[in-house]
Simulated assay, not measured.
Amino acid sequence: MSRRLRTAVSAALIALSCLLMPFGALAAWAAYGLTDTGRYVTAMAPLAADPAVRDVVVDTVGDGILRRAAAERGPLRPEITPFVHDALRSFTRTRAYRTAWDAGNEAAHSAVMSALHDDRDRDVTVDLAPVADRVRERMAADHVTFADRLPLAHTRVALLPADELATLRKGYRVLDLAGFWLPLAAVALAVTGIAVAACRRRALTAAALGTALGGAFLGLAIAVARHLTLTGLADGAGRPAAAAVYDALTATLRTASWFLLGVGLTVAAGVWLTRYVRVGRLVRRRRATAPRSGPVGAAPAPAPPPPRTPGRV
């Protein structure tokens, strides 16, 4: 293979690898980060203490309680509304609320993942009775009065309609395959491109800079998607809570983008430094082995006189 052909093949492989790198990171995050119940619950756990999220929980749950009470007992007095919201706001500062938050997220995520692995077309719902049971146990442990007498109604909350499951299953299967093969293919293409290159040092530098560029592109895409997501919300009051949820879910993806950027720049800088050190050593070696001469422009030293013959005047 000629030098020019090797350079062209190497450039094509490295370019394709750098293009696949951010998409591979995105697919791996979606396949192994969002679909793992333990990681999902861990990522969502800090949001229980977020003020914006707590305000949304108080408003949503409080309005639901007031609507149900009004449907059962008729119109309510105006002073009931702030009382209910204040009680819920106080509850969101307790350990029982954090227990309910984690249990609710775990139950909802497990229900969705079970539906994605199942072939039955049915509405995805979650039963909140186990969640209420764990909350009651937490309240009893905190010595809350009448905690053991709280009723446990099997209330099922709808999460996904049955007509959307087929599309979600296809997308999940594609992500499951892409999350494994795309990063592997990106690494394999980069290694092959460096191996066949006529100048491997330049190929390694190009792959490193391309990886850094892919990490920067991924970080920019996350920021743009965040802006579009928040802008598309009809309720402006819920944007801080949605921003907190978005940031919590994409924390691992942002870390991956910074990792790609840092690794790419570090490798490129390392290659440049090793080349600089190598050139410096070669220059010093040539100077040490070169014959010494006088300054430039100086007259040559006179030849020594011939030796005298003894006995000759």
Rank of each mutant, 00 (worst) to 15 (best):
D127N: 15
T250E: 00
G215P: 02
A203C: 10
A27M: 03
L265S: 04
A115L: 10
L265W: 00
V313R: 15
A11C: 01
R239M: 08
A243R: 04
L47A: 13
L265A: 13
T274R: 10
R239W: 03
T289C: 04
E137A: 14
A198V: 06
M139N: 07
A243I: 08
P300K: 02
A48E: 10
A162R: 15
R202V: 11
V283I: 12
A298T: 11
R281V: 12
L34R: 11
G214I: 03
I194V: 15
A185C: 09
V277W: 09
Y172R: 09
R275T: 15
A87I: 03
A298L: 13
L265T: 03
P130Y: 08
L249G: 07
R287Y: 08
F146M: 13
A147Y: 13
V131F: 12
E137Q: 11
A301R: 11
G270Y: 08
R98H: 11
V277N: 15
D50E: 08
A49P: 04
I222Q: 01
R122L: 15
E137I: 08
R98T: 14
A208T: 04
T94Q: 05
A303P: 10
V131D: 14
L260I: 06
A186F: 05
A298H: 12
V157Y: 08
P130R: 08
A11T: 01
M21R: 02
V41D: 06
L168F: 04
G179Q: 05
A298N: 11
S257R: 01
A303G: 10
A132E: 10
P310H: 14
L88G: 04
A185D: 06
H143W: 02
S90H: 09
D142P: 02
E106P: 03
V245M: 04
